[in-house]
């Protein structure tokens, strides 16, 4: 029997990505759609072959709830969905504060409900490759991480949240993706650290469009320097650099199957055996993980607590 899925939010990500990605499953059917924009909800319902319902009906009748709304609405919607016992998949960015993050993880545990965050870049072959290289300790311990992502903004947002919502700026938008990739590859998305601010500059308070930050990530096991540069105005190198005791690694921010590994003497490009030619392949891997209850999923909400710590510290400055 197929499971019923309900989508809250019919904006750009649902139209451009979820419409295609969720159509790939025979045993998961998108049955319910809700959006405060009724016209948009009806357009998307027709495309999914789903029904437009109220939020309450959607939460009551869906086995799986996908939340793809502007970020400042995430906490409340996730909370409601978890309390109904739904399996919840939240579009990134998760939530804006550590307190909210911890509260939702607690609610999910109490209700034995599953909560995932769709940071699909974790499935990129280059990211998987980099993570395994760092884990192998060939390069030694991680000393520093540099994150660069920027380009002129062109995402066709429906709600305009990217320049209105305090969680819509470059930090939570593309920055959450790249910082998450970095933490995942450096294997510091699990276990807790405390971020200490060295410097933060922004073009304005959130939602900001340009950020340069330097933090120290401190735990009993490590002391890692993190540099973050993000922009919606200027093209940056769009990569993550991980600096280790014996060398460094450059990883592209976009979907790829290669990384550059180097030392002071020389460098070379290393390829993964896995290569995808469509971003939807990454969505499929991510959803397989979430839909079919993979134990210890890399998308479980608990793996985004450290990311939220960094985002909160930078956002509040």
């Amino acid at each position: 029997m197929s499971k019923s899925l309900g989508i809250i939010g019919c904006g750009a990500v649902t139209q451009n990505q979820y419409l295609k990605a969720l159509g790939m499953y025979h045993d998961i059917a998108v049955k319910y759609v809700f959006d405060i924009n009724q016209e948009l909800a009806h357009v998307m319902a027709a495309q999914f072959g789903a029904n437009v319902v109220t939020k309450e009906e959607l939460l009551s009748n869906s086995d799986i709830v996908v939340i793809a709304t502007p970020p400042s609405t995430h906490f409340q919607l996730i909370n409601e969905a978890l309390k109904k016992g739904n399996k919840v998949i939240c579009e990134k960015p998760f939530v804006g504060s550590v307190a909210d993050c911890k509260e939702l993880i607690k609610v999910a545990a109490a209700r034995e409900a599953e909560l995932y965050v769709a940071h699909f870049r974790r499935t990129f072959p280059s990211v998987q490759l980099a993570q395994s290289i760092i884990k192998s300790k060939i390069l030694g311990n991680v000393l520093g991480i540099e994150v660069y992502e920027g380009g002129r903004f062109s995402w066709q947002t429906q709600s305009g949240y990217v320049y209105k919502d305090p969680y819509g700026g470059v930090l939570f938008d593309t920055g959450s993706h790249t910082i998450d990739m970095a933490l995942f590859m450096a294997n510091i998305d699990t276990g807790e650290f405390e971020p200490e601010v060295i410097s933060i500059t922004k073009d304005k308070s959130e939602p900001s469009h340009e950020i340069a930050a330097e933090l120290k990530l401190k735990s009993s096991a490590y002391d890692i320097n993190l540099k973050v540069k993000l922009s919606r105005k200027l093209l940056l190198s769009n990569k993550v650099k991980i600096i280790c005791e014996n060398g460094y690694m450059d990883i592209p921010a976009g979907m790829a199957n290669y990384v550059r590994i180097g030392s002071k003497l020389s460098s070379t490009v290393v390829y993964s055996d896995t290569k995808y030619d469509d971003l939807m392949d990454c969505f499929a891997i991510q959803f397989n993980d979430m839909f079919y209850d993979k134990p210890e999923s890399i998308f479980s909400a608990g793996r985004f607590l450290n990311l939220t710590k960094i985002l909160e510290v930078i956002a509040n400055k």
Binding site: G151, L234, L235, S237, N238, A256, Y258, V259, R260, T268
Partner: peptide
């Protein structure tokens, strides 16, 4: 020029990643 997508950014990335 600085930040030109195709002729500086893409070229630099192609070089960097072989």
């Amino acid at each position: 020029g600085p930040g030109s997508g195709t002729w500086t950014g893409a070229l630099a990335n192609k070089l960097l990643f072989g």
